[in-house]
Simulated scan of single mutants.
Amino acid sequence: MLKTKTMESIKNRRTIRKYQTTDVADELLNDLLETSFRASTVGNMQVYSVIVTRDVEMKEKLSPAHYNQPMVKQAPVVLTFCADFRRFSQWCVQRNAEPGYENFQSFMNAAVDTLLVAQTFCTLAEDKGLGICYLGTTTYNPQPIIDALQLPRLVFPVTTITLGYPAEIPDQVDRLPFQGLIHQEHYHDYTPDELDQLYAYKESLPQNMKFIQENKKETLAQVFTDVRYTKKDNEATSVNLLNALRAQGFLD
């Protein structure tokens, strides 16, 4: 089997939520970002921007939007990766071209660009011994982030990453078996027996069995649907997301 340092780094990756006080040097951070900007894009427009936050007061402003997760304040660097069609649109106008990017498709294109860059950055950072944590809360509470970072029209936060040198070596989180995620030639729907096999390991983990007991549920699936990611919460955050997208010009 082909093995490289990067492949081994990815296979052994862990989400880091506790960081050393050691700072991340500007030279290293800038090199990682510049290299990540070689990631693939939709149409070679590079419709993304990255907001680098080191200032303590700025982290304080961002923290509530991320449900006050401690790593936002504790990490040396917080990076907000944004879909950005503003820069490209301004360039078009300046070159006598009429931009038509105030729509959802353009947001999707920019979001794809943004996530490609973000994941490339994370892979490079971990290869250099840094730890990262993705914050899914970015799209749950986009408006406070937009306000704190003063994001103009056609700029939208897609994901946030905390960055620093790890102060912990947590266990790896479980992943579904490779065979259950691959479909040859076309999508093959799952039989009940296949689903049982696919989720058997996840359901057997002691920490997941503990979650079931603590939440007084019958199955792990109910922990997800009734506690962690409820329909009510998903609908509420969807409204927040759509309202913020409209305010930023992507749903005109």
Rank of each mutant, 00 (worst) to 15 (best):
G131I: 09
Y187E: 07
A83M: 01
P177A: 03
E102W: 06
E168R: 02
A39D: 15
L2P: 10
P64T: 00
P64C: 01
T4D: 08
H186M: 10
A221P: 03
R87D: 04
Q184L: 10
N234I: 06
F107T: 07
A236D: 08
T123F: 10
I146M: 02
A244Y: 00
S204E: 10
A39M: 12
L151R: 06
Q74N: 13
E27Q: 04
L198M: 12
Y199K: 08
R175K: 11
M71A: 02
L28I: 10
T230F: 08
S238E: 13
N96W: 04
Y19C: 09
I161L: 15
L220C: 07
V223S: 09
N44A: 07
G180H: 09
T237I: 15
P166H: 02
Q90E: 14
Q69P: 04
V239F: 02
K59Q: 04
V93I: 14
Y190E: 13
L181H: 00
P152W: 11
L33W: 07
L151D: 09
A110C: 13
P142G: 14
D113G: 03
M58H: 08
Y165H: 11
E34H: 05
T114E: 04
E60S: 08
D193R: 10
S204R: 08
Y140V: 04
D252C: 04
P76K: 10
P70H: 09
I51G: 00
K231A: 07
F81I: 01
A221I: 07
E34L: 15
G164M: 05
Y187A: 06
K210W: 01
Y67C: 00
G136N: 14
K232N: 12
N103R: 11
P70A: 09
T41R: 15
N96S: 06
T114Q: 05
D174T: 00
L79A: 03
F156D: 00
V112P: 01
M45Q: 10
T6G: 05
T139K: 07
T225N: 12
A110I: 06
E98K: 12
M7E: 13
D26E: 06
V78K: 00
Y165N: 05
T237M: 12
Q105G: 06
Y67M: 07
L242Q: 08
V239A: 09
